[in-house]
Nucleic acid binder design. Structure first.
Lengths: 167, 167
DNA sequence: CTATAACTTGAAGTCGACTCCAAGTCAAGG
DNA sequence: CCTTGACTTGGAGTCGACTTCAAGTTATAG
């Protein structure tokens, strides 16, 4: 039952890491609901509003376009997903995308780790250490089988120059 | 010792899910090295080139700006990371970013799951099920402690309307 | 009473990443 | 010989996401 403290746009910006301008911009394009105003017209934000902005920041970090965030924000704001079957579907489908994005990121991490390891061992161990690492086929555009895929972004193999033991 | 098959730009586009225009664009801005040409000037791509494009596609999916990809592509192309200490550092730091991005994504997944669950149970169980889920502080801009953070993007709590049993 | 700071608005400008276009080349088919 | 298709080039146009700007309001401090 406490007063529910409120924040200025500046505080909100500091709190969330999103600039004031950007917050106003999000409001302008209605990604955020119109913020409450004080008598003098200044915006005020409560915890809920800050949480929404944080959610945006979080999704933004993942490269999600603003338009795609709308459904999440609708759910965040006040809609009960269970009452809108299509919203539930949307959430599920977005969930899938995100999980696949995590996989992409994990691949990049693996790629980096491989490169770092490779350097550590003075690359000579073998020349194909993590064959099936990248199962490829992460693009939906063309359902191409893409073959066995000996992949690993850049086949470490044929690398003239530093005596690969056996050329 | 086999001939190493080569691909046209069209095939490469199909193979990687990146359009021909975009591939040319990447070459123009030197994100990709100038592709080999046939006598008639047409580009040809080998497995290695395709792998680089796939790596770009993968990073792109994660929202990474093109400029940030350059170091990865340098490593992919032919540089041995261990020979460029600063490159190693860059890789490590990028790795950190990516791991933190994965965390962000995981949070969004958790958020979705929470929302879906919430709907399933007809939200009434409690009103704060996953307090510490989002440790917040994922932004580096301002090293703000951000307090206890009872978070969860949108405090499920105060939700007038549907008889929450106990208002 | 004035000036500084913290906001407001709408509009214009910037930047990254494409995307499209016009004009041209080359190889093979009818 | 002319057309069609797959490419080439340089350059212009688009779109999303800000970012900056100019002008105005209100609150407090000196």
């Amino acid at each position: 039952m406490k007063e529910e403290q409120s924040f200025t746009i500046k505080q909100t910006a500091e709190e969330t890491g999103i600039t004031e301008d950007t917050i106003r911009y999000y409001e302008k394009i209605a990604l955020l609901p119109r913020a409450e105003r004080k008598d003098n017209g200044h915006r005020i934000y409560r915890q809920e509003g800050i949480n929404m902005i944080r959610l945006i920041a979080c999704m933004k970090k993942t490269g999600m376009p603003l338009e795609e965030m709308r459904p999440f924000l609708a759910v965040s704001a006040d809609t009960d997903p269970a009452e809108y079957p299509e919203l539930v579907e949307l959430l599920r489908s977005h969930r899938k995308n995100i999980v696949s994005q995590i996989a992409s990121l994990q691949q990049v991490v693996d790629f980096i780790d491989m490169k770092l390891e490779e350097g550590r061992y003075r690359r000579d161990c073998s020349d194909e250490g993590l064959d099936g690492l990248l199962e490829k086929r992460m693009g939906e555009p063309k359902p191409k089988p893409v073959s066995p895929v000996e992949m690993s972004y850049f086949s470490v193999s044929a690398k003239a120059g530093k005596s690969p033991a056996s050329v």
